[in-house]
Design a protein around this nucleic acid. Sequence first.
RNA 1: GCCGAGGUGGCGGAAUUGGUAGACGCGUAGGUCUCAAAAACCUAUGAAGGCAACUUCGUGAGGGUUCGAUUCCCUCUCUCGGCACCA
Length: 825
Amino acid sequence: MKKIHYDHAEIEQRWQKTWEDLDLFQNQVIANPQNKQYLLFAFAYPSGSGLHVGHVESKTALDMLVRFSRMQGKNVYFPVGWDAFGLPAENYAIQTGVHPAETTKTAINTFRKQIKRLGISYDWANEIATSHPEYYRWTQWLFLQLYHKSLAYQDSGAVNWCPSCQTVLANEQVVEGQCERCDSLVEQKNLKQWYFKITDYRDELLNGLENLDWPEATKQHQRHWIGKAKGLSIDFKLKENNQTLTVWTKFWETVYGVTFVVIAPEKFEELELGKLIDSDKKKAVEEYLDQAKHKTEEERRIGEKDKSGVDTGLTVINPVNGQGVPLLIADYVLMDVGTAIVMGVPAHDERDFEFAKKYNLNITQVISYEDKEFDSQVKNQERSFAGRGVLINSGRFDGQDSWGEGKQNVADWLIEQGLARWETTYKLRDWLISRQRYWGTPIPIVYDPEGQPHPVKEEHLPWILPTDVDFNPKGESPLKSSREFIERTERLYGKGWRPEFDTMDTFVDSSWYFLRYLDARNSQEFASKDKLKTWLPVDLYLIGPEHIVLHLLYARFFTKFLRDEGYLEIDEPFNKMRHQGMILGPDGKKMSKSKGNVINPDEIIQKFGADALRIYEMFMGPLEADKPWDDRAVAGVARFLNRIYNLAQEETTNKTEPTLERKLHQTLKKVTEDLLVLKLNTAIAMLMECVNQWEKLSRESNIGVLTKEDLLIFIKILAPFAPFLSEELYAQITGTTESTGYQGVHVQVWPEFDAKLAQEEQVMIAVQVNGKVRAQLAVERQQVGDQVKILDLAKTNPEVEKWLADKIIIKEIYVPGRIVSLVAD
RNA sequence: GCCGAGGUGGCGGAAUUGGUAGACGCGUAGGUCUCAAAAACCUAUGAAGGCAACUUCGUGAGGGUUCGAUUCCCUCUCUCGGCACCA
């Protein structure tokens, strides 16, 4: 039969229009808890460059699962929206003068069009954009709820400042001392800013991870970020005035080895220790404090190699042995770790060792090691070592295991003596949400003429983002340039009142969007309790691994807060979460415009069709892996689809070829199982195997090889993968017309798997002799369980006999249906 | 330095979680069709040896457990992510 190329463009456009006219899969949020499935894709920032192949990957993967679930009779909700506030649109506005609202709208329209072309079956009825007043009104409402509970508060202190973005950043947005977005070196500034008190939930955020079905690596990451550490706070006394200086340590067993104490510059000032210093030291100390204050992030990093500090001339008493040791100031001690005062144990800590060497401080070994070389190196003050050993020079604890009884006994004793207590520290700090940028949600706060903050009244929400604004960065919030904003505030609150000019971190917007999805047009509340109760939690969240600490932590925090406020009944928003990998350029590198290795999905759709693009991206490899693009492999997928199209044109028969029927049911089984665990690459491979066999049999036969029913089974299991082609073929075969109402493949029931039909009649059993496969036995299915017979068959097989000649069998193993293993000597 | 993921043909990747390594796709070679090409289809395709049936080797390296290891254990090595002066 003559092979034709089916017209993918025509078919795809026609069905896209039909589905849209029918409002297929729209308005799926109904309060029906039966069989509910809330499937969530991390909503995207609508960038001006449009959809890229990475977007296609995650959207398509979930769409396949969604279509499959629907056919399985699940009540599926699959919403869509836009993380529409953000810097790129604002930066573009600075360059071109085009208002961010304009560019955002255009970008969303482009994305929407592209997504529809891909055949993603989103429910558009609850589409949201975080920049829409009816959305950010509730972001502001949430801020106010936090404010009323004192979980949103204002504080001044050192903050991370990006000189290029002209805004402060959250700790989470500083990567290696650089701005996450533009890689500028981050500076420290003292500013009064708004914070969310996420630390109130730190223990729950940590413990809640336990039962989540998330990738273990992601959970581990969040644990590290929260950074809970149990240690001992030990009180040292200042000799000069008996003032207590508390150090915090995880290595208290080395306390007898303390030969100095180091304090962070900021802490030294906070405790006002300067006044105790002798005049001869005063100048050096003041100089050091001044210099430390002005160190840039870059200089500090250089300092990693060369530690600096200054002796205060003050003496600290080690409580365990009464020894007086010097107090030094050094900026390698960080203000926000522990108590910002560190006990210096140079024999057993690398940093302390370095510091001691540089400033000629004493070194006392208090742990001896089994390894003689190590031990003598430490003894000779050539290096430090932090491994396990036996305590020495440690009074009553000498001879005890430094990681076992010794560690325990030292702690017990210190606590008993009232010298120390357990203290748990965390790395997680409160979330700084103020941003000195325009394109974001305005913080709903106004200041009275005395400068005291007050919440914007709820009836004034949404607290609209003004439009008469000069975007050009001047180191302060662009909103200050809006006359309307100030006039509005004075009109509503009184003369001399001023609005808060900062906007919120866009991560605030995205921390609760999955809640708004459930009731996006509700003007009375952020979502009705009924719908929240019905649909939460999210059943599967597919999100890039780049959101591990930021978004996922914040969203969990919001969920827990709203639960405590009585709005939600769940503790965790996303019980099951998976990551999609990155699609790399053909060169195996991350796609970027500057590298010129970007693949445009529109071009692929035009050339090969949306179905081919969808299937290719899923066929590339495991969803979670990073995979390089291969242009030629897309053509292979297009070929696969074309073969299906041509085979489906052939006549059907009244009895399916038995081997093909078997293959079809094996395929049904494999595809069903793989879809449930998102192993889409192997599901597609199985579909290909099935088609290969179908084609082979069809070639060898003059008449049809498939019944109409079996053909329809194949089309149905193809439907989640290739929604357009399967819809077309289904319509062709069943002859349904629009007049009968929509009866297309996407509302059909997923076929039932028949184990009997999938079973092979003959099973191939391999025979190993001394671990090497030497023969294959074709065994009737009924005989597989007959061990005696199978072993007999194996031993009398001529191939096997050859290898058994002159040998005695000493062991026989039969794994039913798989393998016979004979051991002979 | 620490934490995490990983290393399988020329390439992307499979492998029922201890049971025939290399499914499926790409690429390559030869062929069919064609005046020719493209497209499409067929056959072969881990490496080495052999005319051949066949044999040996082979999942980053080395060792171990086992009748049997890509899979489990130990040591090492390389790659990719992340964190990092965290006391």
